[in-house]
Every structure is written in C-alpha cells, then in structure tokens.
Amino acid sequence: MTPLELQAVAASLVVSGRSLLFTLPIATAIAYVLARGRFPGRTALDAIVHTPLIVPPVVVGYALLIVFGLNAPLGRWLNDVFGVRFVFASAGASLATAVMTAPLMIRAVRLSLEAQDEGLNEAARTLGAGFWDRMISLHLPLAWPGVLAAAILGFAAGLGEFGAVITFVSNIPGETQTLPLAIYSALQQPDGEAAAARLAALSITLALFGLVLSEALVRYARRRT
C-alpha cells in the first residue's frame, strides 16, 4: 500500500470506528424505545430517526453544517466552551457517519427486539423489573446477536459513507479523506484510474472482511444462546 492508501484506510477505520462507539449505545436505546415503549410521540420519533435514510446525503451534510458549523450558535458554543470542532475535522466525519448509519443500526436492533417473546417481558414486569431494567436484564442479553449484527453493519456502512461526509467536513487527506473520498479524488485527477481501482479493491476487501466476520460472529452467538 502507498502512504496515501494507508492514510485513507486508517482514516476510514478511525472515522467509522469512532462513529460506531458513539452510535451503538444510542441506537440500541432508541431501538428499544421504539420496539417496546408506548408513549405519545413514538411515531414522530420513528419518522425522525428514519429521515437520513430517505433524505439525500448531501442534504444531511448541509444540515450538519447549519447546526454544527462555526457560524452556527451550537457549533460556536461547542468550539468556544469545549474546544470541540466538527467542520473540516475527523470528528465531524464521524458525526456525519453516525447520523447516516444510525437508522440502519436502529432497524437491525429493533427487528431482533421485536422478534422476542412478549411473555418473557410480562414475566419480568410482574417480577418487578421496570422499563430500562428490562432492557439491560432481559432484552439485550436475548438480542445480542442482533446487536452484534447491527454493529458490524453500521461499521461497514460507515466505511463507505460519502455524501454527508464530503459536504460537512470536506476532503482533507489525513484528516477527513476516507476511502470513498480518496477514490473520488483519484478519479478527479488525469490518469488517476489505476489509483482509484486499487483503492476500490481495498475498500471491497475491507467490506467483504467485515461481512465474513459478522456472519461468523452471528453464527457463534446463535450457538451460544
């Protein structure tokens, strides 16, 4: 691998890994609330959660710029108070990736939660377990193959995130230039086709590796539970 390729692979892994770290707990909690909660506004939450799936990624990136840009109140406040800057930064790439992959992960976790036996939920309730208690003590332990599958899906999808990332944090080698952005850059250059092909092969390998790993883990999990 050339240093540039290595840089792109590293950036992809860091951006997607960090995104996963933050998104998985939140996505799991939201999935649980959507699968098991009964409260006013549930339908609205369901709709909001799904918007990144149907809105063009460029729009998501643009929306993030409006909210977290240095000219936006929230973005400026985060920068001034905590020194956290998202625009043109790797952290911003993770944020964009998180927003784009969360719906996929929520869906996957939610499906495995909804497939569970309602009878066990009722048993846990009569035994004194409240809503969040049941999530920790009953539903997640039973759904963990689904959570694992969601994590791998989210990570793999995060590696390929393009539109929202390039719109929000631009294409900075070594910082925000992940594999897909590097491929895009290569294609912009005259006789960059060979470099693009190599990067594409890398990214396909990475994706396949993730897929095989996820299958193996899920099969292992099924045997255990």
């Binding site: 036996d117 048993a123 309730r125 009569t126 004194g128 332990p141």
Partner: peptide
C-alpha cells in the same frame, strides 16, 4: 399501577423462565 410495582407474583401456565 403498572405490573412492576404491584408486587403480585405470577406463575404463568407456560412457566416463562428466562432462557439466558
């Protein structure tokens, strides 16, 4: 009151033991 605060034990016909 929700079931979780009633403190009424329930023995279900199908036992409903937690498999994990």
């Amino acid at each position: 009151l929700p079931p979780e605060t009633r403190r009424f034990g329930y023995v279900f016909q199908d036992a409903r033991l937690f498999p994990h």
